[in-house]
Design a protein around this nucleic acid. Structure first.
Lengths: 351, 351
DNA sequence: TAAATTTATGCAATCGTTCCCGACGTTCTG
DNA sequence: CAGAACGTCGGGAACGATTGCATAAATTTA
């Protein structure tokens, strides 16, 4: 890739100046039709490609956006990234990927690495290890466009796109209640994440609406979100040994859902008879599970698309953007046998 | 992000020339210790960050690698990308993502877009729509480092990393034979992909070894690799209506495996009694399926890592690389109930 | 016909950095 | 003590493109 041709080569070959060539290629009005033709034909012939890095330097714009997620190999995030890529591609932006592995330090390093002017904007889903947002605030104050998605912070005023986690959890919990379950546990990701608090709130609201008392014991947090199997195993076992043993559990994370099902299968427990399950997951195969899993599915692809559109709108805005939105997208609730008792028919879900 | 500080600002503030500042920051031997101290302290104080784009222009190196895959939201590829990111990150490279959606045209556009000098090398898994490799050859001849992984071409001489598809298919087929199945169908991705031909060869070899005759009818190709459900549905139904109806099927693609199981469940057929299944998939939840799915799993993460290491080794090589390797990594075979008859005990797998 | 305008092009600065080369001053060598 | 050697530093040309300004020729206008 060293003998790459530049505008200078064209100028030299054709006897023009570089400015004339540049303008001809850009179809400037101040270049004669004849000159344009000559330049364009020659450029075409030798397959001239403008150097994007030189352009970036000049325009102070890299035409690329950085994506910061905890893990790529995850149903939700890979779908979201697919959405991000689709929009970015169509708008002429490159997508640069980085993973935090739920580590605060890694998030700081990645964000700064991306931000040190090689990226026009950032698309971020917070890591569970994030304990403060200074690294984002600093960049945001400097004027770097940032859009948060899925795991979003309250403290930073910018566009945010996420699922309607409250309603997703509310609906699923209400479904469990309507299906006849009385003691509903809650298995969650790291407690401080927006997805956790919002889903917990939805869960609580559903309990309250149906006059079920909320018990702290029934809430279990798994800080690693299912990445550490033992953590989930302990949590599930603790739930099962409770005096007020739950008959159902709402699981608010993808990996947690599958982990929990695995654990119950290993323990030889029957789902839903011993313990019913409804879980947040973006797996495409929940229907295939044994038993088929009742799921709350997030519109991951759409979330990625919307977040990217909003980011690019900030990037390309002529004037500073000060009005920001937080957009919540509805989740998709699918009732399957993991939450419907086989021995006694379930009550109708509407009532 | 406009008031970003440059080496010039430091020079002006400190009364040095830009060259001195640059050298001081680079810890050049021709700068006095005292000057270095002053410059470094000041740079630290005002949080100077070198402009990577200017560096790229100067060094003709972007410190980023382009990844071209058909689909991010896919178990195998998202795991592979995770491996790619892990190595790239540790070696100081950015990962730029693009998807072809199995389209030839899109592959050409993406590859050229990435290659037009904004990327130091390319990591490619071919799309199923790819009918010729001219776009890669052109770039490869120009000196752009390319490493292929998973779906690899024969015609281009460079590093390649993939699974040992032959052996994976061979083992699984032999397992089906040893489990007592006589008529083993083969459900595959687009016929011309390396993964398809290699897996087909493994399948044929196992049949041959066990004196089973190979029948063309029993091979069904799904050009969209399971992205188009109807295509798979048609293929499966055709298999089921064959005069020599298969009692087992080897499925050689991730999405195809789950699609097929879904279809069989929908048809009310019992797996493995009506039709046994063994499939290539990188799903983490095959164990949870109904029935648990016998799988051939590819070391996706490792493949991504190795491919990236090889790519970076070419990129950073002082002299032109002419010796290339094709590395095949072993697959992981997990026998589960989808391939083991419940009515009659299976024959031992060894023998 | 002189002046004003338009047309088509070149010059040179710019983006932020590196690095070759030259210019000092000091110290060492013979 | 002259010259070499060294240690420090600045000037300025790159890298590849864009663009404001100047300029020359051609054309129009008065």
């Amino acid at each position: 890739m060293h003998e790459s041709i530049t505008i200078k080569d064209i100028a030299k070959a054709l006897g023009f100046s570089t400015s004339t060539v540049s303008r001809a290629l850009r179809d400037s009005h101040e270049i004669s039709a004849e000159t344009k033709r000559i330049v364009l034909e020659y450029a075409e012939k030798i397959n001239y490609q403008p150097n994007p890095i030189a352009l970036s330097l000049k325009e102070r714009k890299s035409h690329s956006i950085g994506v910061v997620v905890c893990e790529v190999a995850n149903n939700f995030f890979s779908q979201a990234i697919s959405g991000i890529e689709s929009i970015a591609y169509s708008r002429g932006y490159h997508v640069i990927l980085s993973q935090t592995h739920e580590s605060f330090e890694r998030e700081i390093v990645n964000v700064n690495h991306l931000a040190s002017r090689s990226v026009d904007g950032l698309l971020v889903s917070l890591s569970s290890g994030t304990i403060n947002l200074d690294h984002f605030k600093k960049l945001h104050d400097k004027g770097l466009p940032i859009v948060f998605f899925d795991r979003i912070p309250k403290e930073i005023n910018t566009h945010k796109v996420a699922s309607n986690n409250f309603e997703g959890a509310f609906k699923a919990t209400e479904h469990l209640i309507n299906s006849g379950f009385k003691t509903i546990a809650h298995l969650a990701n790291a407690a401080h994440l927006s997805i956790s608090t919002e889903r917990l709130a939805g869960y609580k609201a559903a309990l309250e609406k149906h006059q079920l008392t909320f018990t702290e014991d029934l809430i279990k947090y798994c800080g690693h979100g299912g990445m550490v199997f033992e953590e989930v195993e302990t949590a599930v076992k603790e739930l099962l040994h409770l005096k007020n043993k739950p008959d159902a559990v709402l699981i608010t994370s993808d990996r947690l859902s599958t982990c929990c099902l695995t654990i119950l299968n290993h323990l030889g427990l029957s789902v839903p008879d011993d313990l019913a399950i409804a879980g947040f997951t973006n797996s495409n195969t929940a229907e295939l599970f044994n038993p088929p899993l009742t799921t709350i599915r997030q519109p991951a692809f759409k979330i990625g698309q919307l977040a990217t559109e909003k980011l690019i709108s900030i990037i390309e805005s002529k004037y500073p953007v000060t009005e920001f939105t937080t957009q919540l997208l509805d989740t998709e609730f699918s009732i399957r046998s993991s939450s419907v008792l086989s021995r006694k028919p379930a009550l109708p879900d509407v009532f």
